[in-house]
């Protein structure tokens, strides 16, 4: 097993499997709440980043390409969390 984990690709896969289990546990045991919701979104962000950097191999790509994907991950995760927490702005209610 330690030989298997010496390889970064295998470690990334194992982290993704563990993170999937962690999300499931968070959802089932905590009957949500803001912390569990934030944890769920944070884990999706971390899993997405592992896929982008290690599976898509953008860790060593030109910065502009890596930056585009990092920005997408951050912006989408941040908007999901913000709308979950604060709801919608009351547009047009004077």
């Amino acid at each position: 097993m330690s030989g298997f984990l010496r390889d970064a690709r295998h470690r990334t896969w194992l982290l993704l499997v563990i993170a999937t289990g962690a999300t499931f546990w968070l959802r089932v045991d905590s009957d949500i709440g803001l912390a569990a919701a934030a944890g769920t979104i944070a884990i999706a962000y971390i899993k997405g980043r592992l896929i982008v950097l290690d599976f898509m191999e953008l860790r060593h790509a030109p910065r502009i390409w890596k930056g585009i994907f990092e920005t997408w991950l951050f912006v989408v995760s941040a908007i999901i969390l913000a709308v979950y927490r604060f709801g919608l702005p009351a547009i047009g209610s004077a």
């Binding site: 999300t23 499931f24 968070l26 959802r27 949500i32 919701a37 769920t40 979104i41 884990i43 999706a44 899993k47 997405g48 896929i51 982008v52 599976f55 898509m56 989408v76 999901i80 979950y84």
Partner: peptide, 19 residues
């Protein structure tokens, strides 16, 4: 194929987990 994986990670969190 990795993009398909990436998109599912977020779909799974949104549809199945986030309450």
């Amino acid at each position: 194929w990795h993009m398909v994986d990436l998109l599912w990670i977020f779909l799974f969190a949104l549809l199945y987990l986030l309450r």
